[in-house]
Every structure is written in structure tokens, then in C-alpha cells.
């Protein structure tokens, strides 16, 4: 690995911004976030960036590295060509606040609109519940989500078509799926998914699945089963193709 590299970092705010080049030494094992921190400590004290865990666990350091949505703390420099500048830009689907920090508050508002967890009455003798590991496995996959919002960043419905008012995006379809498939949950969110949450906008391009740092199979395991439930309960054009001959009531 060469001993220094150039990072082309987006600096700016809501009104304007530009890419600025910083050259900084690199060493074995470094990740993009290390380089950003080094630049911040030595050349640009006020370079704004979010991070917490530096271990891919908190989902704070999302950015677009050479145009690809990634966690900065989990992107090793050895994966990138260092003979050209590495571009580091904020997530483009969200309004910039400053430099690499974007306004993700919309996500927090969206979550509140999804009906909360509602468990059935405890039915085990000790006043709790019994659940088999095989029944919690698939929901545990969804609960790995670190809320990095990279899937929201990449989804064209939000990124290109700006349907933020009508579509909750892949992250919250995963959230809704985790609730709907929770072995104890008795709430029904299917009507909301269709009417309020805009699940019909998703045309299963699977871009979200590709960027998920937690390797959650967002489309196949969360969105498609939800779409099937919606089809079972309502008419939905795309879902109808999937299940054209088998319209039945949602199994309780």
C-alpha cells in the first residue's frame, strides 16, 4: 500500500458545497473513517462527521464512498484503489447539514407512524410466553438492523422520486416485517402498509439488499412476504402478478 492517499471530501452545507482534496498518510488496516479522523485532527478541525462505535454496530457513519453507500468504519482502504482520490460524500437522499452529516430526522418521524408492538396475553404458566428458536430466527434477522439508513439512501423511490411523504422506505418495511412476523404480536399493519406506508411503490429492484451492511435480505425476506400479505388482503397490481390465481383471506 502506498504511504499516503488523497481523499476528496464533500464540504458544505444546505446551501452550497464542494469537493475538497486532502492528502493524508495511510497505514495497514486503516478504514475510511480513520482517514477522515486524521484529516479532522490535522488539517480540518471542523470537518463534520458522525460516528460512534467504529465497529459497524451503531450505523452512524454512513456515507457514499466512491459513489457507493457504505459505512466508513467498515470500509478498509485496502479495498479501494488509492492511486486515484477516494471520494467521500454524504448520503445524497437526505438534506445535508454540514460536510458528511445529513438530516436523517425524517426516519425518526416515519418510525412513529408505524403501529407499535402489541403482544398477545402471556400464556405460559409463569406469566410469560414460550417461543421456539425456529420461530424467532427470521425476526432476529430483521432485528440486526443498525439503522444506518443506507438502504433508504439507495432506494430510487426516495432518492430519485422523493416519495418521502408516501413511502416509508426499505428500513421501515424491515421494521414493519419484524413486527408483523413477531411470534407474539397481534397488531394488524397490513392496511397501513398499503395505504399509509406505500409498499406498492417498491418494485423489488433489490438495491437496498445489496447495500445493507448487516446483510439483511431486505427484499426477499421482508418486503416480498409483506407484499403477499397485502395482496392477500387487497388488490395490488404488482403483487397480483405474483399471486394471480390464489387470492385468499389473510390467514389469521
Amino acid at each position: 500500500m502506498s504511504t499516503s492517499a488523497t481523499f476528496r471530501v464533500w464540504r458544505g452545507d444546505e446551501t452550497k458545497g464542494e469537493l475538497v482534496d486532502y492528502k493524508t498518510p495511510v497505514s495497514e488496516g486503516m478504514v475510511v473513517l480513520d482517514a477522515i479522523h486524521q484529516i479532522q485532527a490535522e488539517q480540518a478541525n471542523d470537518l463534520a462527521v458522525r460516528w460512534n462505535c467504529k465497529a459497524g454496530k451503531c450505523g452512524s457513519c454512513s456515507a457514499e464512498i466512491n459513489g457507493k453507500p457504505k459505512l466508513m468504519c467498515m470500509t478498509r482502504l485496502s479495498e479501494l484503489p488509492l492511486d486515484k482520490p477516494v471520494t467521500v460524500e454524504p448520503m445524497r437522499s437526505f438534506k445535508p447539514i454540514r460536510d458528511l452529516v445529513t438530516d436523517v430526522s425524517w426516519n425518526f418521524r416515519v418510525k412513529k407512524e408505524i403501529k407499535p408492538f402489541k403482544p398477545r396475553t402471556p400464556d405460559a404458566p409463569d406469566g410469560t410466553w414460550r417461543m421456539a428458536q425456529s420461530d424467532v430466527d427470521r425476526v432476529q434477522e430483521f432485528r440486526k438492523c443498525i439503522e444506518c439508513f443506507l438502504c433508504q439512501d439507495v432506494c430510487h423511490v426516495l432518492r430519485d422520486h422523493k416519495k418521502h411523504e408516501e413511502f416509508i422506505g426499505p428500513r421501515f418495511l424491515v421494521y414493519a416485517a419484524a413486527l408483523e412476523m413477531h411470534p407474539l404480536d397481534v397488531e394488524d399493519r397490513v392496511a397501513d402498509l398499503k395505504r399509509e406506508h406505500g409498499i406498492g411503490y417498491c418494485n423489488i429492484t433489490k438495491c437496498c439488499t445489496k447495500v445493507c451492511p448487516e446483510s439483511i435480505t431486505i427484499t426477499d425476506n421482508a418486503i416480498i412476504p409483506l407484499k403477499e400479505r397485502v395482496v392477500d388482503e387487497f388488490y395490488d397490481p404488482l403483487g397480483k402478478l405474483v399471486k394471480i390465481f390464489s387470492r385468499r383471506k389473510k390467514d389469521a
Partner: peptide, 18 residues
């Protein structure tokens, strides 16, 4: 811990589902 389960946490299970 049980309260967290009642709020939706999904812990790993024993063979008898606890």
C-alpha cells in the same frame, strides 16, 4: 429482562422455548 420481552425483545431460546 422479562419486561423487555414484553416490549418486543427477542432473546435466544432454550429448547423448551424460554
Amino acid at each position: 429482562v422479562r419486561e423487555l420481552e414484553a416490549w418486543g425483545a427477542l432473546f435466544d431460546r432454550t429448547p423448551d422455548g424460554r
